[in-house]
Design a protein around this nucleic acid. Structure first.
Length: 667
RNA sequence: GCCGGCGUAGCUCAGUUGGCAGAGCAGCUGUUUUGUAAACAGCAGGUCGUGGGUUCAAGUCCCUCCGCCGGCUCCA
């Protein structure tokens, strides 16, 4: 008698010896067809494995549709890679080697560092190991033995991990494949032959246990698929993605420039990029008006006192540009031989004043709020500004438009009563939804950032934090979309709802954000007079639907692959003359279209039409209007769509109407 | 900030063991008069990121700094 226990807890019994495949068949023909391997008591087995008779065994049938199948295979491939590395290099220490989106990695420490030149040798070793076809055997050992095993293997990271990370576990599992033994939870594939195709990708630094204060290891990135075809498709997809990179397109299309002499992370918006940014600001402004916001302007600097009150200085000093010192005081201090360190201390202690390049707009907006006496009848007050801020991001973090040192937030601060909070939060979320919908960006995730109970970086009393965190949860729930809750992701003054998207390389970026703040108003002593004729402290909402113009446009360039919709495109159409003979007609069409409010350029060079079309396509111009003798005669233009190709000849008026409609509909 | 890789013409890149700095595209000047993804010819264009060192000789080897790329850490 053979009996198996399935993951749902049900028991199946057979009066003869059966294989894993037989069990799958007995459950359903579909399952039997999709099954790739089985797992008995966490040990991977092939489909033709005969299940031992007697006591019931825990059986899990893995199907090719199961996302964990690929994950399991990749993790097994990580073992094979680590084994190969240990054959190529001496005294290698292993850390962690998990599967990740798109592949897997293994963190290792080698006295003789690995370089990409070692890849061919490692890949060759991996092929040999796969060819040997040794199974991954699960071995379970009691805690004390496990530590000794790792010590005997000279695997210090594994010893440390058992002693500090796996303190609860009484027994620990290892997987052995030939001479290679690795502490590992599993599961694994039944045979290394299941690794269809793999490729080492890159090598990078990574801190042990993700801790900056700990040792830095080498992280070996690789990927694996069940078939060579899937791997090739994946690699090709990566290549294609690189062409969408906003840094590549930004250069090719002339959208922005970053100049070494200006400074890292400081964006120069060239005319075409500036135009897009301007259009987006107009788009937001329109919605600000509809939602009852007032726009303000505030300066780029403010006194240190402002940021001492807000709490930004000196606690966030490391992520700010150094403060500017009052010039009279500076020369006096210089005469006295004051050192930089002393200067910094004097600013911290308030002995001397200075100015800070603003790292945020909120303190300025708070001062706009408090510039007048406020009544509950005035609330909510919604102050908006495209406010430019400067932050001293670490040099290694800066890149393109997505992580910069100077950026403009489509910022606003709402001052509300407790009763208004929920509705206003929902209004803010609504605006973020409008923005994403208008751009056709449906692929975003929502994250509610909460405080981390272990950290001391937060200001304000816990009761208010609880109120604010609940308000965020409830507002996020109105999205009708799943959201995650992330402790430690809150701002120092309050929790937040973030909207996160992926870039072309799969990296995550926070764009829109809505934050609840019970703290800053109190720090600044803000108040309004309530219906009870008594002063009350307002609650603040910080929000930015784009996040920052820079990051948003960076992501937007990749989202559209440079093919901006007509309403957003700096160049909506280009007139292409078939030959010099049509220039005069071309100019008249150009003028007519310009007069209709369209952004038109023209190519009157004496090149062949094919060459002009090629240039237009490479510039991703939405519409090309080809004009030749035939068109001049009929008063038409031959319209070419950058995506659909030749649309045929149409009267100039018709083309204008078509474009205007498209602009109107923002498609 | 840390680990690793890379900086050659406006752009994309080549440059052998150290031995006179190259190509394609773009640009300019001509010729060509073209109907849906590259006409032809000529010309011009470089302190080989910066500063130092080794050498008879450095784009090439070594060091410093700056910047870029991948990743880690960070991101009020």
């Amino acid at each position: 008698m053979t009996s198996v226990k399935l993951p749902d807890g049900s028991l199946k019994e057979f009066d003869k010896r059966v294989t894993v495949k037989d069990v799958a068949k007995s459950i359903g023909s579909r399952l039997a067809k999709d099954a790739v391997w089985g797992e008995i008591d966490l040990q991977p087995v092939e489909l033709d494995f005969e299940i031992p008779a007697g006591e019931p065994v825990n059986l899990r049938i893995i199907t090719k549709k199961d996302p964990t199948a690929l994950e399991t295979m990749r993790h097994s491939c990580a073992h094979v890679m680590a084994r190969a590395v240990m054959r190529v290099k001496k005294d290698v220490q292993l850390a962690f080697g998990p599967a990740i989106d798109g592949g897997f990695y293994y963190d290792i420490e080698s006295p003789e560092p690995l370089t990409e030149d070692d890849f061919p040798a490692i890949e060759k070793e991996m092929e040999k190991i796969i060819e040997l076809d040794e199974p991954f055997e699960r071995v379970v050992r009691p805690r004390v033995d496990a530590i000794q095993v790792c010590k005997d293997l000279n695997q210090e990271f594994k010893v440390e991990h058992i002693e500090t990370g796996l303190v609860e576990d009484e027994t620990l599992s290892f997987y052995q494949q030939g001479e290679f033994v690795d502490l590992c939870r599993g599961p694994h594939i039944p045979s290394p032959k299941r690794i269809g195709a793999f490729k080492l990708l890159s090598i990078a630094g990574a801190y042990w246990k993700g801790d900056q204060t700990k040792q830095q290891l080498q992280r070996l990135y690789a990927t694996a698929f069940f078939t060579q075809k899937d791997l090739d498709a994946h690699l090709e997809m990566l290549e294609e993605s690189k062409k969408r990179d906003h840094r590549v397109l930004g250069k090719r299309l002339g959208l922005f420039h970053i100049d070494e002499m200006v400074g890292q992370g400081l964006i120069l918006w060239t005319p075409k990029g500036a135009f897009i940014r301007q259009k987006l600001q107009e788009f937001i402004s329109e919605h600000l008006t509809r939602q009852g916001y007032d726009q303000v302007f505030t300066p780029h600097i403010g006194k240190l006192d402002l940021y001492k009150t807000s709490g930004h200085f000196p606690y966030y000093q490391d992520s700010q540009y150094p403060a500017l010192v009052d010039r009279d005081q500076l020369s006096k201090l210089a005469d006295e031989g004051c050192t930089c360190g002393q200067l910094a201390n004097m600013m911290k202690d308030g002995e001397i004043e200075g100015y800070l390049l603003k790292p945020m707009n909120c303190p300025h907006h708070i001062k706009v709020f408090s510039s007048e006496q406020r009544s509950y009848r005035d609330l909510p007050i919604r102050l908006a500004e495209f406010g430019t801020v400067y932050r001293w991001e670490q040099s290694g973090e800066i890149g393109g438009l997505t992580r910069v040192r100077g950026f403009t937030q489509d910022d606003a601060h709402l001052f509300v009563t407790q009763e208004q909070l929920q509705e206003e939060l929902i209004g803010c979320i609504e605006l973020v939804k409008i923005v994403f919908a208008a751009m056709g960006m449906e692929d975003y995730s929502v994250r509610v950032g909460l405080r981390d109970s272990d950290s001391s970086k937060y200001v304000g009393d816990p009761e208010n934090w609880d109120l604010a965190e609940n308000a965020c949860r409830e507002a996020a729930a109105t999205l009708g979309k799943p959201f995650s809750e992330d402790p430690g992701e809150a701002a120092f003054y309050g929790p937040k709802i973030d909207f996160v998207v992926n870039d072309c390389l799969g990296r995550k970026w926070q764009l829109g954000t809505v934050q609840v703040d019970y703290n800053l108003p109190g720090r600044f002593g803000l108040e309004y007079i309530g219906a009870d004729n008594k002063p009350h402290v307002p609650i603040m909402i910080h929000r930015a639907p784009f996040g920052s113009m820079e990051r948003f446009i960076g992501v937007l360039i990749e989202h559209f692959g440079g093919c901006f919709p007509l309403w957003l495109n700096p160049e909506q159409g280009r007139i292409l003359t078939v030959s010099d003979k049509s220039e005069e007609y071309g100019r008249s069409v150009e003028n007519q279209m310009r007069a209709a409010g369209l952004r038109i350029k023209a190519d009157y060079r004496s090149e062949k039409l094919g060459a002009k079309i090629r240039d237009g396509q490479l510039d991703l111009v939405p519409y090309m209007m080809i004009v030749g003798p035939r068109d001049a005669e009929n008063g038409t233009v031959s319209v070419r769509d950058r995506a659909k190709g030749d649309l045929g000849a149409m009267p100039v008026e018709e083309a204008i109407a078509k474009f205007q409609q498209e602009v109107e509909q923002k498609i």
